[in-house]
């Protein structure tokens, strides 16, 4: 029996780990849904006004950002409270590169990714080495310090006024002035980033990260050195967060210290938890939703968005411990399981 059955997909798709078998039946459905979503995303600028297109662009950027955080929180089991630091560093880097050197889209975005990864690697080893609750505290501290730096190094970052005057993205020298073109650029980079993250998650490396999350002691006895993998995951996650930050800078063309701050980190964490940590697609969906809600209802809340954020946090912990993806898993598990 084991011979003719095709290899069970090892959560490659980012489906919940425990549902590998039912997932196989749903595979076609997932593929179809994915293709429909892609098609819809591709034609957004043709049917939506520039303002709406801009909102969808931001949703895409935050979806990538949330997926990078999910690599840490969901896959590796490292709950970071300061992930916006790498996003912010990426955004400032892209902005500064565009202002002082070249606004070429790929250049700024790649510089942002490298900066995010390097910064995460430079500081992350402390947090990763200490582990446990220290990881939470240290990522929070690192994030807050980056935030303070963004504010105090005003000669470089523009301080609390933000870094403004970022030129529009150029592709092969031509500035993208229409919201639609910027959107397609963002969409392309986000899709590539998501694909890369998906590959990382479904690779043997991703399997090791999941193993560390579930049982670090056993991984050690199987011959893996968890520190190296966690550290690598931290740097990779920082790189993709930086990439998202770079896109963000090109998109909104102003970077504020709050983009590196605690509230942004908290918002992202909420997206990951709401969406369902460890699934990649869940957090991406969660982030899109959170950004949509923030941008739609934010103005009507009179600047008290964090109040809503806080209440949702408290509710989410009790009501949706495994996020939307957890709900999907629940529904799947209720359907009778066919023999493997």
């Amino acid at each position: 029996m084991s011979v003719e059955s095709p290899p069970v997909v090892s959560t490659a798709d980012g489906a919940p780990d425990t549902t590998a078998t039912p997932w196989r039946r749903n595979r076609r459905l997932t593929v179809v849904l994915g293709l429909v979503l892609l098609a819809v995303l591709a034609v957004v600028p043709l049917f939506v006004d520039p303002f709406g297109t801009n909102t969808v662009s931001r949703m895409l950027v935050f979806a990538l950002f949330a997926m990078s955080l999910d690599l840490l929180v969901g896959l590796t089991g490292l709950p970071s409270l300061g992930h916006a630091a790498w996003f912010g560093i990426g955004a400032y880097t892209a902005g500064l590169v565009a202002i002082h050197w070249s606004a070429e889209g790929l250049v700024t975005v790649l510089a942002a990714a490298v900066a995010g990864a390097v910064a995460a690697a430079a500081t992350g080893w402390l947090a990763v080495r200490s582990g446990g609750v220290f990881f939470l505290m240290l990522t929070l501290a690192i994030g807050e310090l980056v935030h303070q730096l963004a504010q105090s190094l005003s000669s470089v970052t523009g301080g609390s006024n933000g870094l403004f005057g970022i030129p529009s993205i150029r592709i092969a020298g031509t500035p993208l002035t229409l919201a639609g073109y910027v959107y397609w650029f963002v969409l392309a980079v986000v899709l590539l980033g998501a694909l890369a993250l998906w590959l990382v998650a479904s690779s043997p490396f991703g399997g090791v990260l999941r193993g560390i999350r579930d049982n670090e002691a056993r991984m050690r006895s199987l011959g893996y050195s968890p520190f190296r993998y966690k550290y690598a995951a931290f740097a990779i996650a920082g790189g993709f967060a930086g990439l998202a930050g770079g896109l963000f800078a090109g998109l909104v063309r102003i970077v504020n210290p709050s983009d590196t701050g605690f509230t942004t980190s908290a918002l992202l964490l909420l997206a990951v938890v709401l969406g369902g940590a460890g699934t990649l697609w869940g957090p991406a969906l969660g982030a899109a939703l959170v950004v949509l809600v923030r941008d739609t209802f934010g103005p009507t809340l009179d600047g008290h968005g964090p109040l809503l954020l806080g209440l949702v946090f408290i509710a989410a912990v009790y009501v949706l411990p495994r996020g939307f993806a957890g709900l999907a898993g629940l529904r799947r598990r209720r359907t009778p399981r066919s023999p493997a």
Binding site: V8, S10, T11, T18, R210, G211, D214, N215, R218
Partner: peptide, 12 residues
Amino acid sequence: FLGQTVEQNVLL
């Protein structure tokens, strides 16, 4: 690895 399948355990 409790959250993972039998095969994934051996695969690791």
